[in-house]
């Protein structure tokens, strides 16, 4: 049972990383990414190939992040002169291209058999039966680090500019913002995060094959972001956990409902998940939490507080 729990938590963590990426790209910047699954696969294969070549798992993560950042950035750049809908089509097409490449370029990707025997990070640090726990701990650290980095970004002038681009790109440029660069940067940073998710996915399973990257991953990630509240990373933590628990938890339906067989339940499961999301959106359309907003008091209070401490120091020096 603990093993199962650890597995679910690892899946939740990977879903959270994907969600964080989409929340930056789509939640904050308003750029849809229907190619999540494709970029995820790209990251996983890149990390797998690097790790298999013996360059190390850390190098795999870095390369996966860089490759995904570059392709996401390039995709955003190509679609910029076109309207928003084209980005949707472009990313969708890109996902499909990646899937086909992984299937057919067997010299590189192993085709439908995939790439087995991918090395794992920190392998050998603990006994084999405790390894998954260590992997989970590592993943939690990564999630926390990414979460903090993104929270800083969201609250920064960069985050503000990106939200402005989402609201009205014309206004953003009349205020001196380079909309093109902001879009490309937001999409590329999101891409790097997807790459990291892909790397951990590959390391966790120790093998990658095309069937792991079906388009449903894109759908689940959108669900997690929508349920969490578009733009809110804290909400996303709940959103991703809820969606993954629904998906994984509903596997137990077969133990409770005896009248239906496994295949029938498998289809009903998806219907139930969809139904759950629809009900959720009807009763809480804004998601769990709202996007960050600057409070004037936070900045003003801090500046007057600084004034007070400075005065305090000054008095101490004088006495």
């Amino acid at each position: 049972m603990t093993a199962y729990l650890v597995t679910i938590l690892i899946l939740v963590c990977i879903a959270i990383i994907l969600g964080l990426a989409l929340n930056l790209q789509w939640g904050l910047c308003g750029m849809v990414n229907f190619g999540m699954a494709g970029f995820f696969a790209l990251g996983a294969y890149a990390a797998a190939l690097v790790a298999l070549s013996g360059a190390g798992t850390l190098a795999g993560i870095v390369v996966a992040a860089l490759i995904c950042a570059a392709t996401c950035g390039a995709t955003a750049l190509v679609s910029l002169r076109l309207s928003d809908e084209y980005l949707a089509i472009l990313t969708l097409g890109f996902g499909e291209v990646i899937r086909l490449v992984t299937l057919s370029e067997s010299w590189l990707t192993g085709g439908s058999l995939g790439l087995p025997g991918i090395p794992r990070p920190l392998w050998g640090w603990v006994s084999e039966q405790n390894y998954e726990l260590l992997f989970l701990a590592l993943l939690v650290v990564v999630v926390l680090a990414l979460f903090l980095v993104l929270e800083v970004l969201i609250r920064s002038p960069f985050g503000r500019a990106v939200r402005a681009v989402r609201e009205d790109d014309t206004v953003a440029s009349t205020l001196g913002k380079n909309v093109t660069m902001l879009r490309v940067k937001a999409f590329a940073v999101g891409g790097a995060i997807i790459g990291i998710a892909g790397a951990f996915h590959a390391y966790y399973l120790t093998y990658v094959d095309p069937s792991q990257f079906s388009a449903i991953i894109t759908a689940y990630t959108f669900m997690a972001v929508i349920a969490g509240g578009r733009g809110s990373n804290k909400g996303l933590l709940f959103g991703a956990a809820t969606i993954m628990c629904l998906i994984e938890g509903s596997r137990f339906l077969k133990d409770i409902v005896q009248v239906l067989d496994a295949t029938q339940l498998a289809s009903i499961r998806l219907i139930l998940i969809g139904l759950g999301l629809i009900l959720f959106l009807i009763y809480r359309p804004q998601g769990f939490l709202l996007e960050y907003r600057l409070r004037s008091s936070s900045l003003l209070a801090r500046s007057s507080l600084n004034g007070a401490t400075r005065m305090h120091d000054f008095k101490q020096e004088a006495s």
Binding site: P157, R160, A161, R163, A164, E167, D168, L294, S296
Partner: peptide, 17 residues
């Protein structure tokens, strides 16, 4: 063309170069 989802203050802060 206010940026509706941003606060009034954020609308102004955005314009700093």
């Amino acid at each position: 063309r206010e940026l509706g989802e941003l606060t009034v203050l954020e609308n102004l802060m955005l314009a700093r170069q």
